[in-house]
Simulated assay, not measured.
Amino acid sequence: MRKHTMGLLAIAAASSLVLSACGGAEPGEPTGDDTAAAGGGETIRIGIKYDQPGLGLQEGDTFTGFDTDVARYVADKLGYAEDQIEWVETISANRETALQNDEVDMIFATYSINDERKELIDFAGPYFVAGQDLLVSVDNTDITGPEDLEGKNLCSVTGSTSAENIKAEYAEGVQLVERPGYADCATALASGAVDAVTTDDIILAGLAAAEENAGKFKVVGNPFSEERYGVGLPDGSTDTCEEVNAAITEMIEDGTWEELVTANTEGTGYVPNDELNPPTPDECE
């Protein structure tokens, strides 16, 4: 990966619990000089999900969820106020493309760090470690883990690796059904078109707790992977990565991380794996 230099980190004054979002270059400004975290630009473009209750959800002009709250905190530390954030919908299938095409400066979108993606982009973090699990109808007693999906219909979001992981490692005969968003998978589950939905446990907990799904679904509660959520950055963003990691570390140490997790999963019964969380950010490459 190419390495670049950039300006010094601009630290904004401490604000409220939910602070501003993650740093990047000004719109249209080249990222080749790794200027994303220099601060002081007019706006910062942050890619998030728009359809994940508890993580990244758009409701009118309001954006809520753990990912958006973490993004706000990091961006504040990079010198960007709340009103300087430009939220950009970034679906799973287009995340690498959005970074490569300079459509966003950073991505906070339940973006699991893996080696294949690191060939194309950089990651800061992780800032959270989830576990892949299953969402089923509340009265379903047949599916207790991925091995029970043989011959079943399983929904996941286009571009996600979750369902492919199950097919490769647990149930070769599972029938994969892709939908553009997790809300679409929940609709398919409610109608009986699929038997289960798979993704990370914290996402499933958010879906189950959504008002329109109350009492319909349950999370199996048998996680079978580690999904390390990172901050997606353009390739060559070593200095930006280091500054984002410093902000994540501060967020964990000052207690904000725990408060944000609790605030965004309250009422779901979800408890993060305390052997994996809070995580320690990786060294930047």
Rank of each mutant, 00 (worst) to 15 (best):
P180K: 03
E103V: 05
A14V: 14
L233H: 04
G159P: 01
L134D: 09
E42R: 09
I202T: 11
A247E: 03
D139E: 10
G7I: 00
E227F: 09
E243P: 00
E253A: 15
E227L: 13
I143M: 07
C185W: 00
L233G: 01
T161G: 08
I44R: 15
D61S: 13
N101A: 12
D200A: 12
F63G: 10
V70K: 05
E42P: 00
T35L: 13
P223I: 09
T31N: 12
R2T: 06
D102N: 15
T265E: 06
G206N: 04
E26S: 15
A214L: 06
D239A: 14
G232Y: 00
Y182T: 12
P279S: 07
S237H: 06
I143P: 02
R179H: 06
M6S: 15
I166R: 04
Q52K: 09
E226I: 05
F224T: 05
C241W: 00
K3H: 10
G173D: 15
A163S: 14
K77G: 14
G221I: 04
R117A: 13
R95V: 02
D69L: 05
I203Y: 01
G41S: 12
Y229K: 06
Y182M: 14
P27M: 06
R95P: 01
D239F: 04
V194P: 01
L135K: 05
K167F: 02
G56K: 03
G221M: 02
S16M: 09
E164M: 12
L134C: 08
E169R: 14
P30G: 10
I143R: 10
G65L: 08
P278Q: 09
A71N: 13
L276E: 11
P281V: 08
E212N: 08
T262W: 04
A130Q: 10
E119D: 13
A25P: 12
V18S: 13
F66C: 10
E147T: 14
D105N: 14
P278W: 06
I248G: 06
D83R: 11
T97V: 10
P126V: 07
D115N: 08
K118A: 13
L19N: 14
R72P: 05
D51V: 02
D254A: 06
Q175V: 15
R228F: 04
I113F: 02
A13G: 11
D51R: 05
L233V: 06
I248C: 04
G54S: 07
M6H: 11
A205R: 05
A190D: 14
P281D: 07
D235G: 04
Q132A: 09
